[in-house]
Amino acid sequence: MTDTLVDTSDTPGAAALADTWTVAGRTFSSRLIVGTGKYKDFAQNAAAVEASGAEIVTVAVRRVNISDPKAPMLTDFIDPKKITYLPNTAGCFTADEAIRTLRLAREAGGWNLVKLEVLGEARTLYPDMRETLKACEVLAKEGFAPMVYCVDDPIAAKQLEEVGAVAIMPLGAPIGSGLGIQNKVTVRLIVEGANVPVLVDAGVGTASDAAVAMELGCDGVLMNTAIAEAKDPLRMARAMKLAVEAGRDAYLAGRMATRRYADPSSPLAGMI
């Protein structure tokens, strides 16, 4: 795995600061990646990113509105020099569409770290793994570092790694559903088998879902709708930041074993 963690025995505070993760040679402190879709406006979006503590945001690649070139742009509100833009291929249903989109993204942004997703159908937005694998291989050969949205299948995850994925990003539940992590077993199996970072991408609805993903040993969580569609997106952004940190700490701390029955916490000896 790519985690960096110093000895925690004496200075847990300092250790928490040193708990970074690395993807394709880039090191980040925040384990929360947030999307930039569905917000009321760019100002709310920027404030939510700030509250979430995210260092990476996903962005889409779309045609410039040539009839209104002076319309506000995302880059005016979220500075790509301070926050890493992770261009996605949302809306692409074939490998060719996704590759074309990311070639343009690389030209627009000038970097090779990208999020690959190739969708199978509009109703579920479930990934088409045959097309995803094809696109991942081509992109890796062209020098891209693809972080890949995928099914929660440990075999598919291995295959993605073999063709050059720099991060495996299984869905917790369908995109935008907010249903939470539906299959904890497969996510754990992916984490245990991966040699690259694993991030749950999609399905998180509330803070406890993010904590569950991190407690399973994921390196991070990617979400959009859970924050953007909360009644108070800024407060939810902060909740997600704390949940990811809490889940990560719980994972590192190593949870207690479960018991079938009660075990008193106060001594039995010395009872009056």
């Binding site: 930039t36 962005v59 889409a60 045609r63 742009m73 261009p87 996605n88 343009l104 959009n224 709708t225």
Partner: peptide
């Protein structure tokens, strides 16, 4: 015409009749 026009060459590439251009940028997305 379905090929990336690198930014460094934009001033060097003369347009031709019938060219199909796509001009994109980053927008909000998940």
């Amino acid at each position: 015409n379905a090929e990336i026009a690198p930014r460094s060459t934009l001033a060097d590439v003369p347009l031709a009749d019938g060219d199909v251009l796509e001009i994109v940028h980053f927008v909000g997305g998940g």
